[in-house]
Design a binder for these strands. Structure first.
Lengths: 343, 343
DNA sequence: TTGTAGGCGTTATCAT
DNA sequence: ATGATAACGCCTACAA
């Protein structure tokens, strides 16, 4: 079956290419009669416009790119799901690239996306300065929206969560359960860590509990192996303190869930010897033993809203007048077994 | 900064567009001297060929599509990671769409991909007949490669794992540990279930242990909620049998990990009261308590090989002469706490 | 209301 | 060895 183009339709209908084109695009210049005739004929022949040609002509690709540092935890999968659902509805396609927490890779991702053509980019940067000049430059033409790691110094829409409030609420809960010695496990060089530690400190201040600096741990999260080693070492260090913590807050999906594994490996009972709570979006929170108390992020919403926002920018004629939003969605605390014991 | 095209380069160099194009494409018709001059000038001006135009001209998109029923478990993330890595190396881009285990969505995914232009499609079908006629028809022009759920009746390359051998080995291990009453938890209407149950039966036959049909459970896996309900109900049913099983084999990531959660919720001790092993690719196998014995699939390889195979097809001139391969990669068993007790 | 012609950026064919 | 020209499929002034 030869491919059906505007030209072939035009020939079949004995009309000109432009008439057919205009009819299909509902141009006001075309009579209703011809329109319906053309449309009927087109569907009968299963006409599919060539999007490549459309793109070349209009400069619009109807594609948005997503650059994300990793895809391994459910948090990211859920964000992507949200993006895809929203994009599909608007007839956009989604190109995902993985920067693998590597700045050079991130750079090549960005360049490749621009080269191959995307209308906009949803971007979760490696860290707060990564490729900032490149992004600033490109964002003059191609709109960027920053998600998740929103402490990134470009003027645009940003969609993340109330990180400070999340850890604040977790600490508050631990305090309510009688804990006074609470450690926090963060990722080194992760932008979100700062905000989440801030919530931790603030909660302590409000509850009039002094912050012990040695309770604040920064872990290398580049690889699972390094994380394991670091977690194992630091948890033992915490346990050997004159005043070992009775509870611990994890700052990300990976850190929180893996802590639970390390604790079990070390034979430390949760929640009897130490309570655990942390950011985590995994469906497995329930399946862990003990089931894990979590700070849950509305990941799907982050994705959906990010897409909506980039579309907003694309639909604006004059981009220099947009008021940039820094959206912070609330987290929710889900209490399970791992924090169940009242001291 | 105005955009730099062949035309603008040509003007700057005082040459014709075609000379510049040929020089950049290393045509034998162009002298080395001009080539180097052109190339230097092009890089100096940061020339990036317009891929859209290239595509329109050549009909090649350098894009491959991936259609996958879900992205929620690590198994899928790892496959996608493998695809993306391989594709990036070959300068291909990857478009991922999620069929959400829904046949209508799958259909729209396929159509949309074809419409928007991909050179080939990596396809994990919902089930063995889903959209088979559509796929057969489209695959005349756009090559398909089937991955993971390879029991799908089209002639093409297929990449999966040795499902039968996987469960066979798991059962064998359980038998070695002294178990004789082994249940298996599969997904209803999942193609892979059949093969994996076959391995279960075969292992029983070889070990001369009769297969008890009531030990073979088919679960509704459409949603986490339904899975939970089904698992909870069936596990209790198994426990109430005159001869309750002492071990259970899970047939997928989700089923296996969630069983562990349900068992803990029901207060059933693993591995003391029941041993658990199953297909699972999660990094959390270790973090679970008890740590989970798993049948691990080389998911990243599945992805990488699938991409390589579709590239193979694209590079062949005469596709009707290709000998289709049905590649089955071996799984590996990782033994941990959840099967540790010797009966 | 319809048709003609030109162009988006590239590649390929054919002259020079 | 280089250049002119047409074409990929579509859109859109502009002309009729």
């Amino acid at each position: 079956m030869a491919k059906v183009t505007l030209k072939s339709l035009a020939k079949g209908l004995n009309m000109s290419v432009s008439t057919v084109s205009k009819a299909l695009n509902d141009s006001y210049e075309i009579s209703e009669e011809t329109k319906s005739k053309v449309k009927a004929y087109a569907t009968a022949h299963n006409y599919q416009p060539n999007i490549i040609a459309q793109t070349l002509k209009t400069g619009k690709t109807n594609t948005i790119g997503v650059i994300i540092p990793k895809m391994s935890s459910p948090f990211e999968s859920q964000i992507i799901e949200g993006i895809q659902e929203a994009a599909t509805k608007e007839n956009f396609r989604v190109v995902i690239m993985n920067s693998m927490e590597n700045e050079a890779m991130e750079k090549s991702n960005i360049s490749s996306m621009v080269a191959k053509g995307v209308d906009g980019i949803l971007f979760c940067p490696i860290h707060e300065h990564s490729n900032i000049n490149l992004v600033k430059q490109i964002s003059e033409n191609t709109p960027f929206v920053i998600f998740d790691r929103t402490n990134y110094a470009i003027d645009t829409h940003k969609i993340g969560v109330l990180n400070t409030e999340g850890t604040h609420a977790a600490c508050q809960h631990l305090f309510d359960m009688g804990h006074r010695k609470v450690a926090i496990l963060g990722g080194a060089h992760q932008g979100i860590t700062a905000d989440r530690v801030a919530g931790y400190k603030q909660a302590h201040k409000e509850a009039d509990i002094p912050v012990q600096e040695e309770y604040i741990i920064y872990l290398n999260v580049k690889s699972v192996a390094e994380l394991h080693e670091g977690l194992s070492r630091n948890i033992q260090k915490l346990r050997n303190l004159p005043e070992p913590p009775t509870a611990v807050v994890g700052i990300s999906d990976t850190i929180t869930t893996h802590s639970l594994g390390i604790l079990s490996q070390l034979g430390i009972k949760v929640p009897q010897e130490i309570a655990v709570i942390g950011f985590a979006n995994t469906d497995l929170a329930f399946s862990l033993n003990p089931s894990l108390s979590t700070i849950y992020q509305p990941a799907k919403d982050i994705g959906a809203i990010s897409f909506a926002k980039v579309l907003d920018i694309l639909n604006k004629k004059y981009r220099n007048q947009i008021e940039w939003e820094d959206i912070k969605l609330p987290t929710t605390i889900q209490l399970r077994e791992s924090t169940k014991i009242n001291l």
